[in-house]
């Protein structure tokens, strides 16, 4: 049972709501319990990966700093959905380092548990 694989999908943009932070915190806790989940950014979630972000209006720790720290906890790469990026007129060059393109259908099929944020 404990060998279950977990996928965290982030589908909301950062700053305007707490979804990104909550998804990342869940992933970090998984890593702390020696079960680092896979993390995938899809839909508006890819906007969390944009470089040059600052602290947000909610006055909370920006998610960008958390994202950059994920690799220390064996949560890497930061997977993103290419179509979501293209739909938003973005290019991988505009994303922070450590991002990698994913096939979302394969990603879901390869994990036992999926958590959405």
């Amino acid at each position: 049972m404990d060998s279950k694989s977990i996928l965290v999908i982030v589908r909301h943009p950062p700053h305007g709501s707490s979804w990104v932070r909550e998804g990342l915190e869940t992933a970090l806790v998984g890593a702390a319990l020696s079960h680092p989940p896979t993390i995938l950014f899809s839909g508006d979630g890819v906007l969390a990966l944009l470089s040059h972000q600052q602290r947000g209006a909610l006055g909370q720790k920006g998610s960008a700093a958390m994202l950059e720290g994920l690799s220390f906890y064996d949560i890497e790469p930061l997977w993103y959905d290419q179509r979501s990026l293209e739909d938003r007129g973005l290019d991988v060059d505009q994303l922070m380092s450590g991002c990698q393109q994913a096939c979302i259908a394969d990603m879901i099929a390869r994990h036992d548990v999926v958590m959405s944020f």
Binding site: R11, S42, G43, D81, R83, D87, A105, I108
Partner: peptide, 11 residues
Amino acid sequence: NILQELADAVS
């Protein structure tokens, strides 16, 4: 936009 996103996510 969920259904369009879902179209790529289903198997």
